[in-house]
Design a protein around this nucleic acid. Structure first.
Lengths: 248, 248
DNA sequence: TTAATTTTGGTATTTATTACTATAAATATA
DNA sequence: TATATTTATAGTAATAAATACCAAAATTAA
């Protein structure tokens, strides 16, 4: 059934000209360090060819009997300890030649990457250090040249984050479970660019949406009057889920 | 290199337990018949097992050296004659067991579907009749039980259409190149549900966005005062592309 | 003790949305 | 032909929302 990759396939036989694939999942995992206002991406350093010593998105090849999501969760769980992470499929990259392990004559096995977009809480998660390679958080605006087409995948994920932040409550998946309104504001500033709105108006607009509940607890973060800690109320948000709304 | 699918793979050898895939593309192709206010999906009747005589999304398996998008365009071009069609990747479905051709013991070849979302203009496109199977437009709210997991894929595409219509100018990819404002309004009503807005206010909101240009030509569609034909001005829209805006 | 900083509540102005009205220009019909 | 009906289009008043500010409160920093 399978064509010998050394042989040119018979062009007349339709089934013979089909490509054979290995499928990988690659995760674009974001977190935000609110104390330094940094958007971070989890990268791992490759210890094997191809792209040995390059940094890449944490990923894995899909195993027999394994679903795509399971593969995504598996590689995530290997690298980071985080509960309540947000995960959604991002995009699939499968153009011929995207992996140097592919035969340059275009026959033989191809590598397709189904990418996933993940959000974890920086403060509540912990990198699991590996014995044979390094893992690290990288600032999203200071990324080295990555292995494969991972720059493109990362870029795709970064755009998803910026867009989706505007019309869905992604912010509350990267912020700590309890946060001040100023922290929400700074998050939006960091991701969407500095001067996108006035703080005072951002506050009232956000509160009017009605899904942030004041815990009553006050915290002091440096100088100034202490702020209330809020948390995201998913029940209060539920009825708004399918309505078109802008968060900014 | 390839595991014999009859044999249980060696669990100790990592590479042996990787799944082998064929990759298919399946297209969710929408159009809208504005004279009858119908949202249509292009389906084909399968003439082979599995799911012989079931209707399915038009798709194909990716060939050697072929990109995913090329495969999507190839199967599209085989089935429908349409210029200026809109195409974007939708989602990838690759869970084990989604295709009955897969071995039930979870070893052997798996079939992954990368789905694409397409919009064509009903009036300006033409189905290419095939000798060995039928192709037809089906009303989106009157779809038979489809082959494979194509119901799920179609559903995913239908949601994409409904959501994206609210914050991007998809409407002008399904409407004829020149249209009356009432036709835009009816399109939004048909897709988003009857009573979502007042016609008069919808008009002024849409016009204020500034990317519809009046051709000056008046047309009479049945009774009533003739309406202006408008067209979408992509240059005027360009600066708004990255701004968060609601069309409704 | 005073200055600086940050939160929070608030207001006036501008802008947008909404519900509605009126007129224009065609077709349908008696 | 005269009149009713239909649809397009412009416009308006009332309401709601967004925006640009302001000021008091409660803390830390000097």
């Amino acid at each position: 059934m399978k064509t010998n990759s050394k042989l040119k396939p018979n062009a007349n036989s339709k089934s013979e000209s089909l490509a054979d694939f290995k499928v990988g999942v690659d995760n674009v995992i974001f977190s935000v360090d609110i104390t330094y206002n940094r958007v971070l991406v989890l990268l791992r350093k490759r210890n094997n060819d191809p792209f040995k010593n390059y940094w890449s998105l944490p990923g894995t090849l899909v195993r027999q009997g394994e679903s795509l999501t399971d593969a995504a969760y598996r590689t995530l769980a290997e690298k980071i300890q985080a509960d309540n992470l947000y995960l959604e499929q991002l995009y699939s990259f499968g153009n011929p030649g995207r992996d140097p392990r592919e035969n340059p004559d275009s026959y033989g096995i191809r590598y397709l990457s189904v990418s996933y977009f993940a959000l974890v809480r920086y403060e509540e998660s912990k990198i699991i250090n590996q014995t044979d390679y390094s893992i690290a958080w990288y600032r999203v605006n200071d990324i080295p040249k990555l292995a494969f087409d991972h720059d493109k995948i990362l870029d795709y994920g970064w755009n998803r984050l910026k867009n989706k932040l505007q019309y869905s409550p992604l912010a509350f998946d990267v912020l700590p479970t309890e946060f001040t309104l100023n922290e929400v504001y700074k998050l939006y500033c960091t991701i969407l660019g500095e001067n996108f709105s006035d703080y005072s108006n951002f506050r009232s607009r956000l509160l009017k949406l009605g899904f942030l509940s004041d815990t009553g607890v006050k915290v002091s973060r440096g100088a100034g009057r202490p702020a209330s800690l809020y948390k995201f109320d998913s029940e209060a948000f539920a009825p708004l889920k399918d309505k078109p709304l802008l968060f900014i």
